[in-house]
Amino acid sequence: AAKARPEIKVLAGSASQDIFYVSGSNLSIDLEYFKALGVNIVEPSAKALKASGGWFENLSWENVDKYPADIIIMDDRSATIQPADITEATWKKLPAVKAGQVIARTPEAILSYDKCTPIIERLAEAIENAKKVA
């Protein structure tokens, strides 16, 4: 799917009350793997990643539109705010959100083919069906 649709930009995010986190692919095993498969992962700047220890860039909700994306994959852990619960107007204006192109992301390493398969299939289906909005 990624090789057939290289123009589709995928942003990995996570939400808290005050901050939207944009994940870089260099320290996340799932994002590194998706990138190796050809997924066009949106990458924060090296400077922004360095400021957070290499993992992500912190954005205020006013700046959540800094990186254009066609699909947003959101951290599905219980400690994070889930997309349906985000009330920020800036979030709701994002093209991927308006297009309904937000899916769950399981950032924890899963060492099982059976449990990884649905995660990869969900992303592949999202890429295959995505509208170019960014």
Rank of each mutant, 00 (worst) to 15 (best):
V97I: 11
L111Q: 05
E108Y: 12
A48Y: 01
L37T: 04
I73T: 00
P107G: 05
I127G: 13
K47A: 14
I73S: 05
E121W: 08
A69L: 08
F20Q: 01
K35Q: 07
V97L: 01
A15P: 05
V97C: 04
V10N: 12
E57Q: 14
W61Q: 10
K115F: 12
I110L: 13
D114H: 15
A124M: 14
V10R: 00
V42P: 01
D65M: 02
K98Q: 15
S16H: 15
P44Y: 07
W61F: 00
K92A: 05
S112R: 14
K47W: 00
A104V: 06
S28V: 01
P118D: 04
T80Q: 15
S112V: 13
D75M: 09
A134P: 06
Y67W: 00
S28E: 12
P95I: 03
L11T: 03
L31N: 02
E128V: 12
A51W: 02
D30I: 03
S25V: 07
A4D: 08
A84G: 10
Q17P: 07
E32W: 03
S60N: 02
M74T: 13
A89I: 14
A84M: 00
V133H: 00
I127M: 07
G13Q: 15
W61S: 04
A104D: 07
F56N: 11
